[in-house]
Design a binder for these strands. Sequence first.
DNA 1: TATAATTAACTATCCAGTTAATCAATGACT
DNA 2: AGTCATTGATTAACTGGATAGTTAATTATA
Lengths: 251, 251
Amino acid sequence: MTSQAPTRKHDRADQTRKKILRAAVREFSTHGLSGARTDAIAKSAKVNKALLYYYFKGKQGLYAAAVEEVSAEVVQNALAALDPSFSAGERLLRSALNHFDRILTQREFQSLMQQEMVRLRQGSGEALPVFFRTVFRPLLEKLQQAVAEGIGSGELCEVDPLQVMYSIFGANVFYFLSAPMMQLALPFNPFDNEALSLRRKAMVEFLGTALFTDRANGAVHAHRVLAHMPMPKPGIAPPSITGLRGRRNAL
Amino acid sequence: MTSQAPTRKHDRADQTRKKILRAAVREFSTHGLSGARTDAIAKSAKVNKALLYYYFKGKQGLYAAAVEEVSAEVVQNALAALDPSFSAGERLLRSALNHFDRILTQREFQSLMQQEMVRLRQGSGEALPVFFRTVFRPLLEKLQQAVAEGIGSGELCEVDPLQVMYSIFGANVFYFLSAPMMQLALPFNPFDNEALSLRRKAMVEFLGTALFTDRANGAVHAHRVLAHMPMPKPGIAPPSITGLRGRRNAL
DNA sequence: TATAATTAACTATCCAGTTAATCAATGACT
DNA sequence: AGTCATTGATTAACTGGATAGTTAATTATA
């Protein structure tokens, strides 16, 4: 429709494939695997439902493809934050900020991964290995390496390397995970730009004082890293508390 | 069935009501609201399905009742850890341990609450307000109070009170949430008793050094609290990676 | 006998996946 | 170049099974 003149058949096909994938990412990330409706995906992609089965083998296959699609976009940034030209401690602080920002800008990825985690717990997770292979493992390795290096050089306290990871990721994930609940508790909206910015700051500062042997040094690093990494604008619309989007049976 | 002699009609009714509720808690916590099957609940409670609609208005109503049921069991412990006869810092460490142990022993509660959090994000959460009212708010208030008191007395660093909460809960929640993924990364199972015990220890020690102005003092507190609060045995079977439990359509 | 508890059987609907037919490039062969 | 069969892309309409919720009859108790 957009460019019709010399549209090779192949090109058009690739295009619709992409359209389906994008629609699938949207639907799956907001409704989960079992909550997503194939009809909805087809409609949202303006495509006949049978095409989902033509291009991807079925709902499962489409889900897997969506997961793969969304994972691919994530890795580079994460590894850039771990550039070895920074000191070990600074790499950790950068990674923490980067993680926060990624949740902010790539909600779909985060949503899919969280759903996948609770899903695996009850059986049947084929997508988690994908996350693990493409994103988690390379990151984890570099993080542990940074911690070891930081402890060795005396820059960081002697902490369990895993604890560092749980502190960084845990606090960030939990901030967004608990936001709906916190909305009930707080006098402001945790998704407001100001609230996000404050949290981001508090988080890095906390890690600075917690991880560095010299707390003052940690504070300095936190300050510097914050100055170097401004908060990005949220990628998609803030999470909508909109009701059931017209679907009758959410049970 | 258990005591048949003078079983008042009323008693038997209450009994079956309870049976249904317990079955519902099991089913909902392992499969989520939409994943749970009313037939499965009825069968597991050894009761005709129509009774679910007789006692509770429907699936939604049953879900709400299950949430209420499971929340009731949680609060006392949590508040006991915040006994004001302990110093502010110690209360925080105790709360952190208590939270860890609660996740360990009351998986059903945790599972339901997490599911509820991701659900609310996409609309339609009636159960979260229950969690909030009965569990979250009272706890949050006391925690913030403890932080303020600790900072005032000079025992604790000047941290954002919310940051403390995110650190405590976030790390714990994330540990269990990420366990399936970590199983792929680690040479041991994060649900092994030994792994759990080590994590629990590392977590409190980290908080000790992170929160207290005097790190040595924090370490002492951490040590003492660990000695006073032994790790309980996990309440239910470790999370089963069992596949789809025979249900055909998990999509 | 009236009322509460319980059941078997049924209905309605939703929804993943299929089928068979149509449409449109492509390129092979005049 | 023009034609047409082949193959890939796309569709409308359907199927079957799963499952939330209902109903009307039955049992047991007070």
